[in-house]
Design a protein around this nucleic acid. Structure first.
Lengths: 224, 224
DNA sequence: GTCAATCATCATGTATGCAAGATTATAGGA
DNA sequence: TCCTATAATCTTGCATACATGATGATTGAC
């Protein structure tokens, strides 16, 4: 076997969670996972512990690991934290972004525009993630960018659902335009303000969907 | 043995790192730790993995675990992240703090005042941590408060050193007073601004000490 | 028929064993 | 004497084994 197993397992499980193949609340049985990946329980456990530390998995002592299921309160608070992190990124990016950073942001913004025109939600979803990631990178602060990326991935399972909201894609794109405008003007405070609102509005609109998700996830948890 | 070993080990190791008993760069040998805590390598490994995920420990594949040693760049970036998180906490705390939150903040501020009067750096160090923690709690956002706490602990080994800077304690206290003033006025933007500056100035003054720390830590790494 | 208590089963948490890569020591040559 | 190559040792990473607490099934009582 080439390379070590644990990092590969962590990435595979994280991808399954972020992409929604593993749903919030779902049980993660060590033995089943060990069989599925054809390894012993040891590297599975180590991968689960890492995911738990990053918040993607919840480990209840003696009761097993579950895909993290954020309740309404935790979800609101997480979006608020995300809003503040994004605002910080916007403040710093406006001041520091290099021409390359700027090009990357504009390119992903163009990708978003194309997705809106094509009414392709999956593509918009992906390009939106790139747009935000480009802003993180433009801060020039790798520690901050890493934290921003981690939290974005944490909320990804919930964001995906959020795009089902009617007209949300157009509204999101309009907000992106305003954010880009502030960044290009070099107005850090304005960029921060607009990014914060952009994320917070997601969280708010999103609350309508929480109950539905909660029920769905709990049903999965009961069955699986 | 009552309860599980891993959480206890994680806490013990984290305390050793935060308190400075284990120094940045120091090697963490699994076998030695297992003997010291009288457990097998398994729970030691799991505790180290958790600490690595939170950033307190660095695990280099096949080469072992080390107490995280932040280079100059990572340190600057970490302080900048901390400044933004604290600013966010200040913004929200100013708007939302309850009378109990306010009492807790004022109480720890009084503790800081006493420590300054007594020129007791260790006490100031502890009360300062309480002051900041009280602001985190006053946001009413547990997720945000948790992140703030985690990052504060991450930087604690370096902060401790920082208090050696002459006159820093008095300056720090004066800044606290200005922060408290903004919070009591309910001016979130001002509190954010002052908290950001308060943390950033620590990071800046701190740079003078980095080289010394780096050398010291590397010497430890070579010996230990 | 419902509920409670006991017991069987199962999963987790920890210990131990083993293989492979990393580190260090040693021996040989320049 | 110094450098290099090789071998011994040590440590990590994973597999396996075992004990304890949790889960749920079955039996008995009401």
């Amino acid at each position: 076997m080439r390379g070590e197993a644990t990092p590969r397992l962590r990435e595979a499980l994280e991808d399954d969670i972020v992409s929604g193949r593993l749903k919030p609340g779902q049980r993660l049985d060590e033995v089943s996972l060990a069989e599925r990946f054809d390894v012993s329980r040891t590297p599975i456990r180590e991968a689960l512990i890492q995911l738990a530390a990053s918040g993607m998995v919840e480990i209840r002592p003696r009761r097993g690991a579950f895909v993290a299921l954020l309740g309404p309160r935790a979800l609101i608070e997480s979006f608020e934290l995300m809003a503040e992190i994004e605002a910080a990124c916007g403040r710093l990016a406006a001041r520091r972004m290099t021409p390359e950073d700027r090009a990357a942001i504009e390119q992903s913004h163009a990708g978003c525009a194309a997705a809106v025109a094509a009414e392709d939600r999956e593509t918009y979803y992906a390009e939106n993630a790139r747009f935000h990631a480009a802003i993180y990178a433009a801060t020039g602060n790798r520690v901050l960018a890493g934290e921003a990326q981690r939290h974005q991935r944490l909320l990804q399972p919930y964001r995906r659902l959020q795009l089902r909201v009617p007209r949300r894609m157009d509204a999101s794109f309009a907000e992106h335009e305003a954010i880009l405008d502030a960044l290009l003007k070099g107005d850090g405070d304005l960029a921060a303000e607009r990014l914060r609102a952009h994320v917070l509005v997601q969280g708010e609109r999103f609350l309508n969907l929480i109950t539905a998700l909660q029920d769905e996830a709990e049903a999965v948890a009961r069955v699986g």
